[in-house]
Design a protein around this nucleic acid. Sequence first.
DNA 1: ACCTATTTTTAGTTTACTCTAAATATTTAT
DNA 2: ATAAATATTTAGAGTAAACTAAAAATAGGT
Lengths: 218, 218
Amino acid sequence: MTRSEENYLKAIFHLGGSSTTPISTNAIAEQMETKPSSVTDMAKKLAEKGLVNYKKYQGVSLTESGIKLALSIIRKHRLWEVFLVEKLNFSWDEVHEVAEQLEHIKSEKLIDQLDTLLGHPKYDPHGDPIPAKDGTFPEQEKQLLSEMLLGSKGVCVGVKDTSSAFLNFLDRNKIALGDTIEVMEKEDFDQSLHIKVGNQELNISHQIAANLYVKIQV
Amino acid sequence: MTRSEENYLKAIFHLGGSSTTPISTNAIAEQMETKPSSVTDMAKKLAEKGLVNYKKYQGVSLTESGIKLALSIIRKHRLWEVFLVEKLNFSWDEVHEVAEQLEHIKSEKLIDQLDTLLGHPKYDPHGDPIPAKDGTFPEQEKQLLSEMLLGSKGVCVGVKDTSSAFLNFLDRNKIALGDTIEVMEKEDFDQSLHIKVGNQELNISHQIAANLYVKIQV
DNA sequence: ACCTATTTTTAGTTTACTCTAAATATTTAT
DNA sequence: ATAAATATTTAGAGTAAACTAAAAATAGGT
């Protein structure tokens, strides 16, 4: 597996290519910041290796083994992110770029021991679940804050957007994973929300609410 | 800097290319397990970038900036080795291959924080000194065990050969860095040594003694 | 159903790195 | 000093990954 092949598998997975619905060449190109013609080349190569299903003009989806590999790369990426935050004092908006490099290091022992050092974490710093070694991928029940009903309460469990701009906004406004959020008011005009986070109240725009995942309290 | 360029700089440094004596194309090719013609190509490329001095048929030596870069790569390699041994329970014969990959990760913060996490170690698991961030390279006074005088005592501070075969031999014979070694007898016939390590006595061949570094007790 | 717009693929190039084989320079031995 | 051996460079070619531009297939709108 070359680094490039690994990145394609990861991109296809993130675009939903693990289901039977195939992903379009264009979509992959955009995600990878490359050109569609390059995607076609790689699609053929990965199909040769039995990692994707590919038929001309029909898009690409991952095979069983493609999914396995994609998950193992995502596992590495997210474990490294936890390491960077927990052990090396990175903030959650700094980890992505470095984890993109670290995820390609080849050593089974390395990742097993890292997992142990970190205490077998279930989620990365952005609240995304970490695939288990055996390929189990524990998707969590969650919904966007923007979809919460008036008056309902939830725990903040993840972010959709992981840009520095957004993550810094959350830091500045003292909104962190694990915080309890209650929807106090919903503004019809611009869909902004008045929320209570811990014992602090504030207004947030729809765009913010549409990028924060919460788990509803039952 | 590509990965390949970094590997060439490191190899040239290890062959002594930081002094004015240039290193031959063949020597570099052997060290890198590649062909002399590939070395010539890279020598031209690195010379273009001002990282090596190169004249046709005259060999290669590192420039100031080449040395700086080589040291920064060696620093990363050795810090990662310490990390693998101290934090991830690797044994000293397992670290090299993984560190070869990790040394190419690009992030200044990563390596600074790693250094801090490890408590600013001065030596790697094989006793080799770790270059400081500012480029200082604290070469330690040391000599080969095979060169020690009869009856003299020293502390084991490093290994020359870092192959698994050799490192495992040391583990099996309970010889570790930091142990005090005394030369009890020198055999003229085959230059083997009878030594005392801690309170254990054993015979070692010349080949073993010629791959163990000691620091003489004054 | 047909024409147009969009998407996807093909064909041909480029860059970085490597190799083999042949040519050239240097070193060594007599 | 010169021939033989060795070391080094050049030339040409291969591979992986990317790109551009042109061709081909698909999808949408009427």
